[in-house]
């Protein structure tokens, strides 16, 4: 039944799965950080990832800034944009039901995507790989750029995890996740902290966008397609869990890759089947129990 499966196919899809998983993990991580502190489900996360890719493209085409420069600049630019967004549309409604902030970021997606489509059209634009070529591992061909994405995104995820779980700055964030008004009563500027945290989460999404640009086509809808999966990842992993977001992201990427090998028709469905199973079997999310029981 599975005679078509070769080691090349298996490893190839596993690699694609890991790459996709890297993006899932980075985006879910940013979403979890933002949700943890602000209780905002940032529906615009995908759109900001898309903006990151476009900023890289614009930097390259209009300013001649190469990929490596964009990797630094795009997250800063988009992160700053995110901070402005937070001040303008999230801060005014932060005391209301959190459904409103979800809807506000949803409305922002319509505007951002619409504007980008107006400017750049709906079809995908190519971004030249900064690391052409690759290495033949015997059982598969590994493009250099994909290897770079794998390693770099893993480093980013671990670095963010370390920042939050092991540093003083992270302690403020963890404490504010539990009781932000108490942290503020210690004299810490929590409103600013919220803006910066939103900026950090958004910058992570933009960084993902820059990483993705040479692999996928840069297009206005690249974000919402990804967002759909990210939502499932976050539901499976449990909202607000940092480590849960990272692990579930990679896990889902791998599962998706493997389904492509064994049952190609079902690769999109697999994620959602897992989600529904997870909901039935572990309604609180795979990783949420270890985090907090609030």
């Amino acid at each position: 039944m599975f005679d078509h499966i070769t080691i090349q196919l298996l490893m190839g899809q596993l690699l694609i799965g890991l790459i996709n998983g890297s993006f899932y993990a980075m985006l879910a991580l940013g979403l979890a950080i933002i949700f943890g502190l602000m209780h905002v489900v940032n529906f615009a996360h995908g759109a900001l990832y898309m903006l990151g890719a476009f900023v890289a493209l614009i930097l390259l085409n209009s300013f001649g800034v190469p990929y490596w420069g964009a990797l630094m600049i795009a997250p800063i630019v988009v992160g700053a944009f995110g901070i402005v967004m937070e001040r303008l549309i999230l801060k005014p409604i932060q005391e209301l039901d959190h459904l409103y902030s979800l809807l506000a970021t949803f409305a922002a997606v319509l505007i951002i995507e619409g504007l980008m489509r107006l400017q750049f059209g709906a079809s995908g634009l190519p971004y030249r790989s900064p690391l052409p070529g690759g290495v033949n591992l015997g059982f598969m061909f590994l493009p250099w750029y994909r290897a770079w994405v794998l390693v770099f995104s893993l480093i980013v995820c671990v670095a963010v995890w370390y920042l939050i779980e092991k540093t003083k700055l992270g302690a403020y964030l963890r404490a504010a996740n539990e009781r932000s008004e108490i942290v503020e009563s210690f004299g810490i500027n929590v409103p600013l902290m919220k803006s910066l945290t939103y900026g950090l989460g958004v910058a992570l999404a933009a960084l993902g966008g820059v990483l993705a640009a040479p692999i996928y086509q840069v297009s206005p809808s690249m974000g919402s397609n990804l967002m759909i999966v990210i939502f499932a990842v976050v539901v499976i992993g449990g909202m607000g869990s940092i480590i849960g977001a990272i692990l579930t992201g990679y896990l889902i990427g791998i599962v998706e890759g493997l389904t492509k090998v064994f049952y190609p028709e079902g690769s999109h469905l697999a994620i959602f089947v897992i989600m529904i199973l997870a909901l039935i079997l572990r309604p609180q999310g795979l990783f949420s129990a270890a985090e907090k029981s609030r």
Partner: peptide
């Protein structure tokens, strides 16, 4: 004043 300003 905001909470953090009062604390300060």
């Amino acid at each position: 004043r905001r909470t953090y300003q009062i604390a300060r």
